[in-house]
């Protein structure tokens, strides 16, 4: 599968349109919005988010990597994806 970086704006769009469907008010999100404090991340939404990232970015995310260090805000997620993609590209190049 082709590797593709995901931008913060793309992720914000996904969260707003797919994960926050049941919210009765539009939620303002930016790259540093704390996803825990904003009440966005739970078991279900986390899986939805991981599934989306895997299918768009073309990477496999291990269960152990789905943790607050990598998923606490959009900026962390983007950095995590970038690192995974770079690592994968290096492996492919060898």
């Amino acid at each position: 599968m082709q590797l593709k970086k995901i931008t913060a704006i793309e992720l914000i769009g996904f969260i707003q349109h797919e994960l926050l469907l049941d919210k009765d008010e539009e939620m303002y999100l930016d790259a540093t919005t704390d996803l825990v404090n904003a009440g966005i991340i739970d078991s279900l939404t986390l899986i939805q988010l991981v599934t989306h990232i895997e299918s768009v970015a073309g990477i496999k995310i291990d269960d152990d990597e789905v943790n607050p260090d990598n998923f606490k805000d959009i900026a962390s997620i983007v950095a995590f994806i970038d690192t995974k993609i770079t690592k994968k590209m290096c492996e492919n190049a060898i």
């Binding site: 009440g39 966005i40 991340i41 739970d42 078991s43 269960d63 943790n67």
Partner: peptide, 13 residues
């Protein structure tokens, strides 16, 4: 549920 972290979100949400 195999989930590390984020427990507080469930309480809040």
């Amino acid at each position: 549920m195999g989930q590390q972290g984020f427990a507080l979100t469930k309480v809040m949400q």
